[in-house]
């Protein structure tokens, strides 16, 4: 996307940075007056994605960075997560069947399932710096105007 994002944040690839992500998102949500359901969807998908990147993208413990950019458009919000960790495409991950008993409930893929459920679009691209995941959230209640604003 050629336009400047409405806002962005860069995190060290450490789980202790997650509260900063939450604070950034909720500050934006207040500025743009997003409805609670939309805030929750974005919060959940970002939390799952960034937690996964930090937990598995840097297995050797090396330092890394995760950049999150967000664009607001009329009726939708686009979030792009770039990281320089291990290549991983969550859009091609084959989800296991939903569990039918406690005994067969595994821990695999639940976060990816949540992202696919709560985001309206999920796109992946492997570029020169690393992984790039784009999430789109539609907000039909605000389709009539652009929420764009200079957030400084």
């Amino acid at each position: 996307m050629a336009t400047e994002p409405s806002s962005q944040i860069v995190l060290d690839a450490q789980l202790a940075q997650l509260p900063q992500l939450e604070h950034w998102l909720h500050t934006l949500a207040g500025q743009f007056a997003w409805p609670q359901s939309l805030i929750h969807r974005i919060d959940l998908c970002l939390t799952e994605t960034v937690t996964n990147v930090i937990s598995y993208g840097y297995p050797d413990g090396r330092a890394g960075a995760v950049r999150i950019r967000l664009w607001t458009h009329a009726g939708q919000i686009e979030v792009r997560i770039d990281d320089d960790g291990t290549a991983f495409d969550p859009t091609s991950y084959v989800l296991p069947a939903l569990p039918v008993s406690l005994a067969d409930a595994s821990g695999d893929g639940r976060g990816i399932r949540l992202v696919r459920h709560f985001a309206d679009e999920v796109r992946y691209r492997r570029g020169a710096p690393g992984n790039q995941l784009t999430l789109v959230f539609r907000d039909p209640d605000n389709a009539g105007h652009s929420g764009s604003r200079d957030s400084g």
Partner: peptide, 19 residues
């Protein structure tokens, strides 16, 4: 106020152990 997949995993693991 918020449930992520890691929270669900904790619930499942302990429900499984309890069963």
């Amino acid at each position: 106020t918020f449930m992520a997949s890691i929270g669900i995993r904790t619930l499942i693991n302990n429900a499984k152990a309890q069963k």
